[in-house]
Computed example of a mutant assay.
Amino acid sequence: MEDAEAFRAEVRAHVTTMLNGGASPYEPAWEIWGLAGRTWPGDDGDEACYSLQLIWGALTDWVELRPAEADQAETHMITAAREWLIIEGDREAEARYFDRWVHDILGYERQAPMQS
């Protein structure tokens, strides 16, 4: 699947499932992580899958590696999902979302600017 719209529609479906409640958000979060890891719609100029893979990978790893904190991780999953539905499609808002979630919330180190 190299089509950005198909990729985003599938992510949206998993996010919607997560927000419908009734079950743990872990499974749809894991599905988003897997989808982002095996899809690259960059041909359409859409590189969201890279950041989505980092976000959902970190959140699912949190549940797996620190099960005592699963409730906290799942609360973050719900928050990330809600925020994604609000901003998805607005590339500037997405860039802010990715920056905040990847670096500020999940703690991935920011890359130093390249020196020329």
Rank of each mutant, 00 (worst) to 15 (best):
A29T: 12
Q115P: 09
G107T: 04
H14D: 04
G107I: 08
D43M: 11
Y108N: 12
W84S: 01
Y108M: 13
A80D: 01
S51C: 13
P28Y: 05
R110T: 04
R12Q: 10
V15Q: 03
V11Y: 04
H76L: 15
W30Q: 03
L19F: 08
E64N: 15
Q53H: 12
Q53Y: 00
R96Y: 07
E2G: 14
W84T: 03
D43I: 10
R91M: 08
D3Q: 07
A13D: 11
W56Y: 13
G42P: 04
E27R: 13
V63R: 07
Q111W: 12
G37Q: 06
A81R: 04
A4P: 08
A48Q: 05
G57T: 02
W56M: 06
G21C: 04
E88Y: 07
L19H: 07
D61C: 09
W101H: 01
Q72Y: 06
F98R: 14
H14L: 00
M77A: 05
W62V: 02
W56V: 01
E74L: 03
A112G: 05
T75K: 14
R38W: 07
D90F: 09
E88I: 13
M77P: 00
P113F: 04
A95I: 08
A80C: 08
G57N: 05
A48F: 11
H14Q: 11
D46I: 00
A29Q: 04
G34S: 14
L59P: 01
E64P: 06
W56N: 00
D43T: 15
A112T: 12
Y108A: 15
E47N: 11
T79I: 15
A13R: 08
A9C: 12
L106A: 09
A36I: 02
W40S: 13
L85T: 10
W62P: 01
D61L: 12
A93V: 09
R110I: 06
A70V: 02
L59N: 03
Q72P: 06
E94I: 10
A73F: 07
R110Q: 09
A80V: 06
R91K: 12
D71W: 00
R82S: 13
A95T: 13
A70K: 05
E83P: 03
N20M: 13
H76P: 01
R12W: 11
E64D: 14
I86Q: 15
H103F: 05
A80E: 02
G107Y: 03
L85V: 06
I86P: 02
V63D: 01
H76R: 15
